[in-house]
Amino acid sequence: MTPDNKISRIQELVYEIRIGEVMQSDVITISPQTHMSELRKILREKRISGAPVMDGDEMVGIISIEDFIKWLADREHDCPISEKMSKDVQTLYADEPLTQAVNKFERFGFGRFAVIDRQSRRLLGIITKGDIVEGLLKKLEIDHYKEEEEIYCRRVEHFFEDILADKVVLLFQYDVAGHDFKRAGEGASRLKASLKRLGLDPQIVRRVAIATYEAEMNLVIYTDGGQIRARVEPHEIFVKVADSGPGIPDIQKVLQPGYSTAPEWVRNLGFGAGMGLNNIFKCASKMELKSVVGKGTQLYIRIDTKDGAMSETN
């Protein structure tokens, strides 16, 4: 933001922000019978420079540090604050924009205004110039933060467009530990988050995530671990999941829906019902499974980014 449009943003904000958003709502009130001599202690202890004077539910005035100083300077006798407070109570409504408050501060020269509810006319809070400045600064800070985040997201989303090359390939690798059921899925989760950030179609991201997650579960359940590698290109996402053993003796058999060699503990956790590879097959544009017993297994999943939801049934 340039300094110029920062100023115009503040001008917008004084119309956007409501008084109720920046006022102090836990108001300290003082009864009209309180003596002027007690005032200093109250103001100092509560760290305030003034307070509404309430006679029961009714606001009868406002007393401030200025009134106190004037009373001291005039060397008058002690008296109830009701005699020294300003009885001309100017109020603001909580639903009015900040600009109303700014105007009133200018017009009356007061240090604070009571804020009331438009309907019930109940006292809701108190507002000072300091509250206005603080409220504006907070909003500007949030704006700034949001703006930075937006730039960051946009930058990543247009990643492929920003790169000037005849061919762009991104490679991600995730290492998967075997038999660690609690952490299973972290690789797929991180891959999913990365693809989302690249601004790819959510349907495509979902298909890659589901296929990779199922493959990762297989690594965790049946092997001592392995790697997930994802090669991301504008037209295709290619995921290779590889391990170094034990290998699959009969590939045709494991591709049958419902076929499973999963141990009971895996089944009790909601996995191993023999639908994993079937799921991967459904999500993929192309899938290939290679395995050598004693050496390891490689699963290749290709998902065409132009494919959208086409090959997925749901």
Binding site: K182, A184, G185, I210, F271, N279, T313, N314
Partner: peptide, 23 residues
């Protein structure tokens, strides 16, 4: 069965299940 959830449940759905593991 989580594979079934992954294969037929639509985005935006509520899942009712008796399983409570992180998966």
């Amino acid at each position: 069965l989580m594979s079934d959830v992954l294969s037929f449940v639509k985005p935006g759905a509520l899942l009712l299940t008796g399983l409570i593991n992180p998966q």
